[in-house]
């Protein structure tokens, strides 16, 4: 029987493709609107009826936003706090997870430490801001890098995720390393770290995204432009420009959003798989 080589598209399939197109438009439109507005000249933004595509594209909004508030400084602060907090979270979580799974310490000690981690999962970050602010100002660390970073320097969730991942790794490899005389330190760095890399990368990516976007804690702990991070700086820009210049505000928004979009494009697979794995196991 001669088979039809061209795959036939059925009506339900057409409907599904239309639905998918609508989804892409609904999700993408706000971001496109943001991007296009950042290329519009002021008089084009304040026109009725307005435009969707920029008529006379301009790059002027970007330097204007960059100079309206000290964006360079905000950017540096965001990079510093994000990098330090992420590195700290990954290292501390890896050490803790390794010790909870592979040391032969008494059970009560390991269980006790693990219980603390699990209990911490139940305390949401936003609840503790007021007492943490009091602690930080008592230490005179308000408006400082350590003030921004320290409450976010450890992650109970990441520790939990890494521990579960380590439990799923073949134990014999670690045993073999132990018989060969490798110390815990060597076993951690040379055996477990390479094997746990996918989980470690997931923990790192989560940390980067949450630090970069964090708003409430930096909002209250910083009070000078020297210390403000990008989201707070963007909010300052909005307050100074007010409702007067959406083009400049949208350009500022692109500064904040673009690095995460680039990160996502590069590591989409890791992020989405990490999320799904976290849900399946948790």
């Amino acid at each position: 029987m001669p088979s039809n080589t061209r795959p036939r598209i059925s009506l339900p399939q057409i409907l599904a493709y239309i639905a998918m197109a609508i989804v892409i438009i609904l999700v993408g439109l706000p971001l496109i609107w943001m991007l296009f507005a950042s290329f519009k000249q002021t008089d084009e933004i304040y026109r009725m009826p307005g435009t969707f595509f920029p008529e006379q594209p301009t790059l002027m909004n970007y330097p204007a936003a960059w100079n309206a508030v000290p964006f360079g400084r905000y950017f540096a602060n965001s990079v510093i706090t994000t990098v330090v907090a992420t590195a700290s979270k990954m290292i501390l979580a890896l050490f803790c997870a390794y010790a909870l799974v592979y040391t032969k310490a008494p059970k009560w000690l390991k269980d006790g430490a693990f219980l603390l981690i699990v209990a911490a999962l139940m305390v949401p970050g936003q609840v503790v801001i007021v007492p943490n602010y009091v602690t930080m100002s008592m230490l005179h660390w308000a408006d400082s890098y350590q003030g921004i970073i320290l409450p976010n320097a450890a992650t109970a969730f990441g520790t939990f995720l890494l521990r579960q991942y380590c439990l799923g790794l073949p134990y014999e490899v670690v045993e073999a390393a132990e018989i060969d005389g490798a110390s815990h330190w060597q076993r951690l760095w040379l055996v477990i770290m390479p094997m746990a890399q996918p989980a470690l990368v997931t923990v790192g990516l989560f940390a980067v995204v949450s630090e970069w976007n964090d708003f409430l804690w930096p909002l209250i702990i910083t009070n000078t432009n020297e210390m403000r991070t990008l989201p707070i700086g963007l909010y300052r820009l909005y307050q100074t420009e007010g409702l007067q210049n959406w083009g400049i505000i949208m350009a500022g928004t692109v500064f904040v959003v673009a690095p995460i979009v680039l990160l996502f494009v590069r590591s989409q697979k890791f992020i989405i798989e990490g999320i799904a794995a976290g849900a399946v196991r948790g």
Binding site: L92, C96, L100, K110, V123, V127, A154
Partner: peptide
């Protein structure tokens, strides 16, 4: 020795979590 390793490996993580998650409660 194993217990000391455990404590050494978890101490910073647990201290930070206690200081900024449990103590604030």
């Amino acid at each position: 020795r194993e217990s000391l390793t455990l404590v050494g490996f978890v101490i910073l993580n647990i201290t930070l979590i206690c200081a900024f998650t449990f103590y604030p409660l």
